[in-house]
Simulated assay, not measured.
Amino acid sequence: MLPACGDNMAAPVRIILEFGGGAELLFDGMKKHHVTLAGQEQPWDIKQLLVWIQRNLLKERPELFVQGDSVRPGILVLINDADWELMGELEYQLQDQDNIVFISTLHGG
């Protein structure tokens, strides 16, 4: 039997986003955001999450947070307390209850 339309939609994904090291200033000064991402056919990945963040959370100066389709150099990304480079970076597929942390290591003088 073929699945009905919409049966292959994944459940929503609830994650926690944290911003630190000054990056929180781009998000109205809020360091922690509890987010629910709508279910979709394909699993959410970090690349899609960055687009979602830009459209829904980022309040000012996007050039200080993103560059192209990734985060700007100088922003450390942790996925569940592990460097995202160990997790597949942009291709990492988000899991329910993941904790994603963005820490700016850039400091003006």
Rank of each mutant, 00 (worst) to 15 (best):
64 L>M: 13
97 Q>M: 10
21 G>Y: 06
48 Q>I: 08
109 G>D: 11
81 D>Q: 15
87 M>H: 08
71 V>R: 03
26 L>F: 08
76 L>Y: 06
82 A>E: 15
81 D>S: 14
27 F>D: 03
76 L>W: 03
87 M>Y: 10
39 G>E: 02
19 F>N: 02
35 V>H: 00
59 K>L: 04
75 I>C: 04
19 F>Q: 01
11 A>K: 12
77 V>W: 00
62 P>C: 09
63 E>F: 14
60 E>T: 14
109 G>P: 09
109 G>N: 13
80 N>D: 11
31 K>W: 00
53 I>C: 05
43 P>D: 04
95 Q>P: 03
8 N>P: 06
31 K>G: 03
71 V>W: 01
15 I>R: 00
23 A>Y: 05
72 R>G: 08
76 L>I: 12
34 H>F: 08
99 N>H: 14
18 E>P: 12
47 K>W: 00
107 H>Q: 14
34 H>Q: 11
102 F>V: 01
65 F>H: 02
105 T>N: 10
56 N>Q: 13
93 Q>V: 05
106 L>E: 11
29 G>K: 08
97 Q>P: 03
12 P>K: 05
77 V>P: 05
73 P>A: 06
85 E>A: 09
42 Q>T: 14
46 I>V: 14
102 F>W: 00
59 K>H: 10
61 R>G: 09
3 P>N: 12
60 E>C: 12
84 W>M: 04
68 G>C: 04
57 L>I: 04
14 R>H: 12
15 I>K: 00
67 Q>E: 15
95 Q>F: 05
24 E>L: 02
13 V>S: 03
6 G>E: 01
104 S>F: 05
46 I>R: 04
65 F>G: 01
28 D>W: 02
55 R>I: 11
37 L>S: 08
45 D>T: 07
56 N>E: 13
60 E>K: 15
14 R>K: 14
7 D>P: 09
67 Q>L: 13
33 H>S: 01
32 K>Y: 03
29 G>F: 05
31 K>F: 00
72 R>T: 09
93 Q>W: 04
106 L>P: 08
8 N>C: 14
83 D>Q: 08
100 I>F: 02
98 D>E: 04
109 G>C: 10
50 L>R: 07
20 G>T: 10
93 Q>D: 07
76 L>E: 09
27 F>A: 02
73 P>N: 07
79 I>R: 03
39 G>M: 05
24 E>W: 00
54 Q>L: 12
50 L>T: 02
26 L>G: 04
10 A>N: 15
1 M>R: 15
6 G>L: 07
49 L>H: 02
35 V>E: 08
63 E>K: 15
19 F>D: 01
54 Q>N: 14
67 Q>A: 13
73 P>L: 06
82 A>C: 15
6 G>A: 04
64 L>N: 11
103 I>V: 14
27 F>H: 03
76 L>S: 05
42 Q>W: 10
88 G>I: 05
71 V>D: 07
73 P>F: 07
74 G>Y: 06
49 L>G: 00
57 L>V: 02
84 W>D: 09
34 H>G: 07
16 I>F: 08
75 I>P: 07
103 I>D: 06
17 L>S: 01
7 D>C: 14
106 L>T: 09
90 L>E: 14
81 D>V: 11
32 K>A: 06
100 I>Q: 00
87 M>D: 11
53 I>E: 02
38 A>R: 13
25 L>C: 09
29 G>Q: 07
